[in-house]
Simulated scan of single mutants.
Amino acid sequence: MNDFLKEFFPTVYHTKHKESNYCKYDNQWLQLFTSSLYLAGFIATFFASYTTRNLGRKPTMLIAGFFFIVGVIFNGAAKNLAMLIVGRIILGCGIGFANQAVPLFLSEIAPTDIRGGLNILFQLNVTIGILFANMINYGTSKIHPWGWRLSLSVAGIPAVLFTLGALFVTETPNSLIERGHLEEGKKVLKKIRGTENVDPEFNEILKASHIAHRVKHPFRNLLLRRNRPQLVIAI
């Protein structure tokens, strides 16, 4: 938005209004503002894998929600470029933790017949969120000179909803069983499946957990010859 550029990137604002389209946004600080979110998300994923495994899926989602709310506060209240970048980094940490925990949570909590659908729904809602964000930006760009601040602050609504949702959901039976809480895991499994007859699924989760615990150096295993095709495709 022009008001945003005037506030934080005046040189970009003046360049933007030249006739030539070449390198209108050639500014390293603007690139850092944009890219810091993705870099922080990438790095945070490694920490999130630890919390997801050792603390559970629910606490990891709560950590993500905390990052989202704090990041929105920093960006919405930004007085200088440093606050903007710090806010983006914190939001990136939230994305790293959420993207680590939420698909895993959905996969483990869902019945097998709708598991794929729920995971696709997660991706669909991300893209719907992008659509809503663009609509909000379109509307707030007409509010001068603080529309950009409103746009960044409105992100607090889904951030709060996400955090509240994480507070009320149950931990997954897979996570509980992985961390040795077998009886609690079985109790949760009965609750979410709505039946007492969960022994086959419980035993399957228990077996998978034992296999997972026997895996040593999982990141190093990615480089093994048998795993290289999948690694190359993923990259």
Rank of each mutant, 00 (worst) to 15 (best):
H213G: 12
V154A: 08
Q28V: 11
Q123H: 11
F202H: 06
I211E: 09
S175D: 13
N174L: 02
S209T: 14
L39R: 00
G56V: 05
N21L: 11
W148D: 06
L104R: 08
M1C: 07
P200C: 06
E184L: 14
V198I: 13
L152C: 12
N197H: 09
S141N: 14
I192M: 09
C93E: 01
A64W: 08
M61R: 06
E7C: 12
S175H: 10
A64V: 13
V198F: 13
L81Y: 00
N21C: 04
H17Y: 15
S141R: 15
I85Y: 03
T60A: 06
I233C: 01
V160E: 04
F33L: 15
I120K: 12
I90P: 01
I157G: 05
I43S: 11
L104S: 12
L106T: 03
R179E: 13
G185L: 13
R57Y: 08
A234Q: 12
L176A: 02
I114R: 09
S153N: 10
D113C: 10
H213I: 09
R214A: 05
A78M: 13
E19L: 15
G96N: 02
M135K: 10
H210R: 14
V72I: 15
L189F: 04
M135W: 13
L152W: 00
R193T: 13
A212P: 02
N197L: 09
F105M: 09
K187N: 04
N174C: 04
A159C: 07
G129F: 01
